[in-house]
Design a protein around this nucleic acid. Sequence first.
DNA 1: CTTTCTGCAAAAGCTTTGCACTCAA
DNA 2: TTGAGTGCAAAGCTTTTGCAGAAAG
Lengths: 150, 150
Amino acid sequence: MISHNSDFLPLRSRLTEFLRQRHLRKTPERYAILAKAVDLSAHFDVDQLYNAMESEGYHVSRATVYNTLELLCEAGILNRHLFAPNQARYEVARGNHLHLICRRCGSIREIDDPELSARLLAREYPDFIPEYSSSSVYGLCANCRAKEEL
Amino acid sequence: MISHNSDFLPLRSRLTEFLRQRHLRKTPERYAILAKAVDLSAHFDVDQLYNAMESEGYHVSRATVYNTLELLCEAGILNRHLFAPNQARYEVARGNHLHLICRRCGSIREIDDPELSARLLAREYPDFIPEYSSSSVYGLCANCRAKEEL
DNA sequence: CTTTCTGCAAAAGCTTTGCACTCAA
DNA sequence: TTGAGTGCAAAGCTTTTGCAGAAAG
């Protein structure tokens, strides 16, 4: 499980550092899952990651995938989004975009907006230390808009 | 199922109007679920609503609760948030607050921010008609912050 | 009357859990 | 050597679905 994405190396270092700090083990599964997560574009769900790894002949159990994605979120390397029930989606944390979600077909488009996330994180909140932010705008995509005009 | 909340009457009218436009039926269950949703404070989940109604002796099936909450979202009367897996939460749409979510204990605090949501909705997006927005800041609450300092 | 909506129960789908075994430290 | 981590399968939850019966229009 080798990543060809240039983002991988720095993220691998971050994972190593995180594991070291918490005295957790540096297992091959954890690095393999990170590599595949980095390779998948934008958002992915547990099944996409699991199937992508299987199809390359690298087997990890679903339980390990769940555990590791959770771990990568705690490490701040991934963010988890829950746009629909029973469908957690993950992405490499960059945190500077906005999600446009169609309430009819469920499609998700991303709009870059570094300023918005900077504003949210720079703010002072009482008794709360911000780490990352997520903003979503719900509405209708052009396609579904046309369909709704009866 | 009578609501004592002053927000109820205008929302009931909105529901009636929505049902009329779509040629859907004005069933007592739909109004009862709306009434209870308005009475529950801030965020609530399907189970809280279901149990609250049961405990008052008003029975509706879970399937109807799910259907109706979905309907109320489409009507723009409620918003659905998915802060954690398998735990959809609903609230009466006001859409002018920000959620502070602790990544450790999962607690959710709301901060009013009419300006933020106004900005998100006033913006022009290509091929997308915005209806409502939701912003969340993830981090650590004071309580969990103290616990994490090993 | 007709067709939608509800209730019930079963099914589906994602996620978590328990336990034995493996392997990183 | 030893206990954290993995794999596997079963269990747990929330949500969805199918169908018969109830009731809105």
